[in-house]
Nucleic acid binder design. Structure first.
Lengths: 159, 159
DNA sequence: GCGGCAATACTCGGATAACAACTGTCCGAGTAAGTAAGG
DNA sequence: CCTTACTTACTCGGACAGTTGTTATCCGAGTATTGCCGC
């Protein structure tokens, strides 16, 4: 029941991409330096987010990652399941039907009660994460920090 | 975000122990055979449940495991966290304070929004599991199966 | 026949390997910009 | 001066090791039974 490290990375990066003005691409090297992360490993998670259709990757100079759709239409659940996988945490092995105490087929018309309870809890978990969008998270970022990030990625052209 | 295999084993075994009449101990060998599980590995999980104070282990002949308290006072969450560990699935690394885009200390007076959202979801998950007791699960077991289990462990004395 | 004792068999508990998944890293394919040559 | 083709540098994408956690297993410590011996 441990959550992958990449979930935090993916969420922070998605959050940052939602802060930059428009569709300005940010390369993964900059993202990695911004948070002090290992660039090569971050690549793996950004790739997962891209495959899930949350980010859009642009190759070549001035390329990078940008949100594939508005921050109001991306939920925390989207990011989490893109990185972590959307598989259920509990895979019922139906052990009630095995061994010397196996239940008869006619006793298994209803789904396993244990699996049902966990599925219900998992549903609550997902619903709670689905209720929060990336946009709402941006609003919780201190304004001074948000301004600094906007200035950093908005229009700095050295040389 | 994968749940350990032992959670299912622990829940089924706890459920079965709640079905046997009173404080009749059931050895792990019988439990393993009842569900077709590996006895040596099951031992590890039963041990965890015992350490958590959910089961009581009796050594020696006619020994085994029994519930340490009534099934009405044991929740699914108790069993799950006893086997899986009660640690939070998300350990915030505070990466917002690291790298070139590090937030200033005065910008971090409030806890990380990402960690807060996940903590909220985790709370929903736990609350959902805490609401169901082992006793309630027993009631969902088909009566015919329950009767068979009671007869199996209640009073069969060959020889 | 009864009580005590020792042997026994059965139980759990902790220490020990095998496997898998997550973590961490590298190099190659593709693209857009920049540059220089030609018209 | 403009167009065009080429070179270049920068980007992402997939393939390849290292390390931690889960899975699986075994053997030793402790206890209640059970049979036996002595009284």
């Amino acid at each position: 029941m441990k959550l992958s490290e990449g979930v935090e990375w993916g969420l922070h990066c998605t959050l940052l991409l939602a802060e930059v003005p428009a569709g300005v691409p940010v390369p993964r090297r900059v993202l990695a330096e911004h948070y002090g992360l290992a660039e090569a490993y971050l690549a793996k998670h950004l790739q997962a987010l891209t495959r899930a259709g949350l980010l859009h990757a642009t190759p070549g100079p001035n390329g990078g990652f940008r949100l594939a759709r508005p921050a109001t239409e991306i939920t925390v659940l989207d990011v989490l399941e893109a990185v972590e996988g959307a598989a259920s945490p509990f895979a019922c092995q139906e052990i009630r039907r095995q061994g010397s105490g196996a239940a008869l087929p006619e006793e298994c018309t209803r789904p396993c009660a244990i699996a049902s309870v966990i599925a219900q809890a998992h549903s609550s978990w997902r619903e709670s994460l689905r209720a929060v969008t990336i946009d709402q998270l941006v609003e919780r970022v201190p304004k001074t920090l948000r301004a600094r990030n906007r200035a950093k990625f908005g229009g700095d052209a050295p040389t």
